[in-house]
Design a binder for these strands. Sequence first.
DNA 1: GAGTTTGAAACT
DNA 2: CAGTTTCAAACTC
Length: 759
Amino acid sequence: MDTTQKTQITSSLSKFEDSPVFNYINSLSPIKPVKSIHLTPAFNLLSFASHPSIFTSPHVSSHKESRFLKRHNYMDQSKPVLSSGEGTKVSTSGEACLEAGQPCNSSAGLPENFDPGVSLDDASLELPNEPLRYTIELPQTLKYDCGSPDCDPAPCITETNCASESTCTSLSIVPFVHEDSENGFPDGGVEIAGISQINQKGETIGCAWENLTPDATDMLIFNSPNDSEAFRGVIQKSLDPGTQFCPALISAFPKNHITELPQTTVGSDELKDPSLQTGEAGVTDCMSGSLMHNVETGAGMSAPFSSESSSNLHRGFRRRCLDFEMLSARRKNLNDSSNTSSSVDNQLVPVRPVNGSTVCIVPGIGLHLNALAITSSDDKNTKHKTLCSGTQKLSFPTSTASIFTPKTSQEAVHESLASASTERETDVIENGVQFAEDAFQASACAINEEFNQISPKKKRRRLEQAGESEACKRCSCKKSKCLKLYCECFAAGVYCIEPCSCQDCFNKPIHEDIVLATRKQIESRNPLAFAPKVIRTSDSIPEVGDDSSKTPASARHKRGCNCKKSSCLKKYCECYQGGVGCSINCRCEGCKNAFGRKDGSAMVETEGAPEEDEETDLDKNGVDRDLEKPDMFDHEEQNLVSALPTPLQPCRTSVQLRLCSKSKPLGSFISIGSSSTVDKGQGYGKPSIIRPRNIIEKHLQTVVEDEMPEMLLDKYCAGTGIKTSPNSKRICPPQGSTPSGRKLILQSIPSFPSLAPQH
DNA sequence: GAGTTTGAAACT
DNA sequence: CAGTTTCAAACTC
């Protein structure tokens, strides 16, 4: 722009400003023109990862976003500490913000003004109420903060300081931008806005703060022994009240939906915790889902700031946060785009669980999420142990439910879900739910991780021993560089994290390119390589069907096992580990799989009735079958409730696996049509075990798994003509893979979502 | 915590 | 496709 233009603009602006109309608008709108301008650029840089890359998402998008969000979170935490000064950072935008922030903090102590009272409160409280406005309001809050006398106009977030550093402003501004749609960041704006509407409040604030705080969170890695403890306290807090969680969920939900959710719980609880108040904003941001925020906030908050503890916690979360962020962003997008179902499909795959509530899974992200979910589950489990001694069953994985624990939360969720009449709404809600779950799980996992960080192995063992080892994926690869399927993390589509004890790990966001490339390679060899190992065969795969009965549940292992010495009674056996019975596909010797023997006899164990006709049964009513077998949990939560405590591990495993699959590619795979599949679905192998999990999870899991396989099969088998299973084991049914209904679903299914970025 | 066992994954 | 090797989880002590 030429100076002339600028001058013109400025002049015009001044005119406008002068005009009463402008004033009026100004009064109404929180947005400040100036900020918006700065922001746009910043945005680009920051956020957007936008697309989930294939695998994704985790890496790029997540990474970036995560950072973005993270900061927020951290900021909150750090806030108190901030003053200390981290001006040093320069590199990232966030860092830049820091600089900007510093001045603010130091200068005026603005932070306090800024956050605490107003912003936080508003955020937490208001969020539920006025989802839509958040975007707008946030800015306002910012304004207020900044604008507030306390904050010097100059130093604060506002333009002057930040101006130089677009990031800073950008963050705060973001919301504005979004609404204003001023910038050309439609996406960014949207996503951001979408990501955390709720967050926005906090975020916005958080942003500013974060900026101030900088990456400290990232940067700061403390090994404070206390962390765990601090965490506990926090976590417990967060966990205890289901209510808290609710808020998180609420936040997770699309704005529209949010309103529906019970607000009361949120506000009160969160507010109660001082810690929450302060820290949450940031946390929520990260979580986008806000799920995290409870936990984190609690953590962060609780520790009055031992930056250390909080930092650690955050770190742990971070990873998860990324996912969440991703999810949230996408969800928002979905919501936004919800109008255009098609678009949505690509990104999210709404699944309809039993209840009819749909769950959306993010494709690319899916992996992550899935992984997270899985991991989370594990983590959750672990947490439960530690945190909730009593409630083992509450598995985080199911996470939301468990987390929400309190019925209230769950109920609220359900209600919200139920409330949504239209599919979209349901979808959205579910997305929200899922998201929340994911976030939650992630958070949980993160927490656990943090927790566990001390000694991954030990923790791992503990968990495992506890039977929850599976929760968060952790690997200890030494030679594979975590770029092969040997690596559980990689196989699960997630990045390795701190708790991992791997060596020379390349499965990190930093090496995203490598990871993706490797994934592609592997997928090229075996398209199903990253598909869930456990598939619900019954419907989809008749082949097995022949003796579908094999697997107790409708679920089966994708390739089948090849056990020779373990008699399929140990986790060495993937079928057993997945909580499913062995099937024809298995080449095991001396199969004694408790979930169902290869010959089919075993299956009986669980049930008396053969599953054979799962297809028929499922087709008719997946439920029926399930009913027969506890294994199957259909989707129904009911079953869960009744669920027996069978071998937890298997359950978990199965669940986890499913989750993983889910998270991975599955998400992407799952298509809208899935509903049908879901219905059928159930089948986890011996799901009975699984019950503990939340309903939601179940739904998700079931859906995902079931569908995935089918989809995969269909795709590969029918669609591509590739019949093979990766191993050459029959994945595709010789005949027509799916009997009737399923195929439809498959078609709808996007494609192999797998990690691979866009093929 | 170290070592062994096991079976999937990868390689030939 | 089958056999072998590599690898890391699962398991045991």
